[in-house]
Design a protein around this nucleic acid. Sequence first.
DNA 1: TTGAAAGCGCTAACAT
DNA 2: ATGTTAGCGCTTTCAA
Lengths: 363, 363
Amino acid sequence: MTTIQDVARLAAVSVSTVSNVLNGRHDRMRPATLAKVEAAIDMLQFRPSRLARQLKTGQSSLLGLLVPSMANPMYSHIAREVETCARERFGLRLLIGSTYRDAAEEAAFFDDLLAHGVRRVIVISSLADEHHLESAVERGMAVVSYDRRATPGRPSLIGHVTPDNFEAARLATSHLVAQGHTRIAFATIAGSTMSRGDKIAGFLHAVDAAGLRADARILDGGPLNERGDAVIADVGHAVGLRLARHASDGRPVSGIVALNDLMALGLMAGLRAGGRRVPQDVSVVGIDGIFQTALSNPLLSTVLLPVAAMARAMVEQVMDTDAAARTPPRDRLFSELRLIERESVAPPPGAQAAAASTRRPGA
Amino acid sequence: MTTIQDVARLAAVSVSTVSNVLNGRHDRMRPATLAKVEAAIDMLQFRPSRLARQLKTGQSSLLGLLVPSMANPMYSHIAREVETCARERFGLRLLIGSTYRDAAEEAAFFDDLLAHGVRRVIVISSLADEHHLESAVERGMAVVSYDRRATPGRPSLIGHVTPDNFEAARLATSHLVAQGHTRIAFATIAGSTMSRGDKIAGFLHAVDAAGLRADARILDGGPLNERGDAVIADVGHAVGLRLARHASDGRPVSGIVALNDLMALGLMAGLRAGGRRVPQDVSVVGIDGIFQTALSNPLLSTVLLPVAAMARAMVEQVMDTDAAARTPPRDRLFSELRLIERESVAPPPGAQAAAASTRRPGA
DNA sequence: TTGAAAGCGCTAACAT
DNA sequence: ATGTTAGCGCTTTCAA
């Protein structure tokens, strides 16, 4: 490896002059010197070691990104946007870690980041507990989390960027209501997180507003057992199958809002496996807007979240935070949601008149 | 940050003793000393800086992973397996980079890895050219690539791990042949890479063997224009739509093997958008075995690739390579393929008797 | 305008 | 069995 020493020797100047060149302090030398150094640099194809620089300055050029699972399309979409923004705006690379919703894995990831001198992390965690994040802050890290609100009244040192989950679920639910559905369910997985809670609240709000609370149901698909990536779709599949098998029960659900698109996709598959048709027998709406919703059959209606904007906000916020100053980062709630009406929602079976919501299959 | 100095001071020993503890050289000290040091370490919650260690030893605890796009489910699946293996077997974290099939981005990624002292990379690149990889090797990196064979007769310094693309396509094609299809097409995207070439060869081989070459077609969906993640599905969609619109042409294709699952999923959506039914009008087979194939409607029949095994092989190989010794890494071809028969394949329209291949919807 | 030198936190000879 | 010390490649005072 060529070092700053080699460059200095070749250019016949001191290492500090080379360092000045590297750091843009061109005013501190004669143009001729600058030229000599630059010539030496590209003659040797010299790339300064970020490692050594970081050891000296304490500034890392890495950003930590913690995701529950890279194989989940929503998370990889967010990761993609975070990566693009981090690189374009700040020249940062990503040190990524999947933690599979395991507290010990998360802690280990933070330890490793610290050991690598990475002091900025974006966390997409569905762990309800926020202590490990706070403790990372105590250890000098700037952390911004996705899909998690600050506990009201409890000042937090971590930044929160989150979609308006309440509104997303409300929007999805209202869409079903507008189509004439009266027996609506919200399909979720076991365990309560803030974002799940907010979605359920939004669902209940919409259902209440329509006077449909008595017939509303929360379908809990049970826990995510292991390394949860495809698994959430499997839970949806199970819920769909169960629902299909009980379709003959008194008053079957005719419309379902799923916790997210992946679950909705599983739900549709399960419903179909159980012999029920979407949307003729049951309507389904998702939340997220992952690209797979435009490939399913029927095309999945969903609430599109502003992923790129949220990713940008997370990167900016985490870069903005001065860990030393302990500036409590600003929390951001994203409400720019868009209902994408496709094919998975129709009026309930036997309905006379559907509401006049414009259908745009495709989109 | 607490340093090795702090620990030494607290334990009242020298830094080298602490270093010995950190590096497991317990035999070089009295048990009492060891105990003292360990007590100091966890009293201070000390984590040695990998940065400093790396600067000294030259050993990085990071593994580079280059993917065309994190948002592509197949790549994120591979990334997931690579990450798991790297961490479990070698305690390595991942420095990841998406390059969107752009040569300059790839080069920049290698530069950054080098600057970070990362000297082992796993590359999933669809760039046909291998020069930039060779040049990384010249600069001291161990690189293993996915889905790319060595050019026969031309010794390579990079490792190659690849599924048996020829066989995968042959298997998929034979499945259609066995169902009685006679007019079969292979759907691909523009640009030839080694893996694409192999798949096409496998397709042609199967079609030849069945005497169906004259009616076989290669459908080129055109180029991937930009940051290619959902885009390949879009190309598939376009091909499907085009095909549907020309269905009335003389002798329409009745069975399609897609370059990969994502393209197959897009193809099915496009076919449906154009009014054709899968598998009644057209059968479709994919390659890869991403989990989304188990969620589509119809469930997509596909050739499952041994992703976990390949990921493991890549990690092992890249760790195994001694960059200094210039050991040309061993190439590995994975032929453990499994045809998963689901719902997207049926006998062609108007066929009398289907071949006796056992159908297992679901799977 | 340029250079010398200290030191970031660690490891590994080489003493003792 | 334990300690001293010279760097790894860089940045950054401080001097010249």
